[in-house]
Write a protein that binds this DNA or RNA. Structure first.
Lengths: 236, 236
DNA sequence: CGATACTGCAAACAGCGTTCGCAGAAAGGC
DNA sequence: GCCTTTCTGCGAACGCTGTTTGCAGTATCG
């Protein structure tokens, strides 16, 4: 009688026990959505576009997914399946976490729309749980309490997303969208003419000494943040 | 004749030299948008709703703003005006940056929608430039190259957003939305029953030893990350 | 062999961001 | 002073969105 609360998609069975077999699978729908998002961004993932890609109508999708956000949940879980948790890390926890972070970076660079999707704070999918398990396993030898470990993993995730966002912004601004960055620097130099931002002016003046490879910057920042969090040199 | 590229809103004059004076100001529009977002989230900031709040029609807004994203740009700049850059920090760079981070945290907690708006990677507004100048001033005595300083400030911003997001999720989940977290733990414990996630199970088992005040957690994590970035104990 | 519980899907709905077109008002040029 | 230019306000409309409804058909259970 009562509808009950709308349960998370990961708690719902993929198909019921009665009726005919569903024509599509969650994986197939997720793949279609990912393809659209990879090509034209998250905004291109409309219910109609996904339905078209599958060769059906929009209403049919709602037999698989309660809402568009849930479809995106499926897509997130799909790309989170690209982690290879069997890859050897090196034995030391920092090397292991760094290897995991590099994989995460690769996923972001392959699927830039993921950066726009992570703000939805939906429930953690199965592949994210596996990721969490792997990260905790890497930290099993480190002597800090579990709360701190989860904390560090959370910060690591946020940090990787941040760095990936910077890389993507830089890359697309340099090639396909020179407009945006030109606007940025135009306004910035305008604002600096007033002379009320000496430190900023100085920092931007000495800006491009030479380009550091993105990978080494990534490794350096991630390593420093992680050691700072888990083995601080200055405990106080 | 040529339309030219659509210039950033911060490069456009607030009003033209000819014609009648605009009925509203950017500040007034931004304030109206912020009020709506504070009350009902970013999704409540529709062109129609903002227009209604101002007592006009949707089309009129486009005399002030080229697109909805630009309206949100205005709102972001508006709340970035809540920083008090005259407040004393303590003299040490870490204390200064921590004070700045605490102010930033306050803004996020007062305007949670800001977390959903920062992904739009629009141009930096005037108040963000002031923030940047202040943060660089705090680091003026630190002997690392400017690139590293900008890097650290960027990471700091991302970190504050991350911690604020966690605080907000915890807060709303505990009070107004017990549903979400219940779903989360429901699926998580279901997934753990399979026994393939021993580390995660262990970490969650020892979970709530006692609640640390949010402020002290914030200070602790921010301080550790910053010292890790700018004065790493283990340079290699 | 009903009864039940599912599936696929056309059609429709309310709401969204945005554009068009035009009436009217203020400032520049002569 | 006046005409031209350039701005402003805004009703109406367009195309698109996520989602709901309703119904015909089908596989499984008891």
């Amino acid at each position: 009688m009562t509808e009950g609360p709308v349960r998370s998609i990961w708690l719902r069975p993929e198909r019921g026990a009665r009726g005919p077999a569903p024509e599509y699978s969650r994986g197939r729908i997720a793949t279609a959505g990912v393809a659209l998002a990879d090509a034209d961004g998250l905004a291109a993932v409309t219910m109609r576009a996904v339905a078209d890609a599958l060769g059906t109508g929009p209403a049919s999708l709602y037999r698989y997914v309660a809402t568009r956000d849930e479809l995106i949940e499926l897509m997130i879980n799909e790309v989170n399946g690209e982690f290879d948790h069997t890859a050897p890390g090196g034995g030391h926890w920092l090397q292991d976490l760094l290897a995991l972070a590099r994989q995460s970076r690769g996923i972001y660079l392959r699927h830039p729309w993921l950066l726009d999707a992570t703000g939805l704070d939906g429930p953690i999918g199965p592949n994210a749980v596996d990721y969490l398990e792997h990260a905790l396993a890497a930290l099993s030898g480190v002597d800090v309490d579990p709360r701190t470990k989860l904390e560090a993993i959370g910060v690591l995730n946020g940090l990787v997303a941040l760095l990936a966002r910077a890389e993507i912004a830089q890359g697309t601004a340099g090639r396909t969208l020179p407009q945006w960055q030109r606007e940025q620097t135009a306004y910035l130099s305008e604002a600096l003419k007033a002379g009320r931002h000496p430190h900023l002016a100085a920092a931007l003046a000495t800006r491009p000494p030479e380009a550091e490879p993105a990978e080494s910057l990534f490794d350096r920042v991630v390593a420093r943040v992680l050691t700072g969090l888990l083995h601080p040199g200055t405990p106080r």
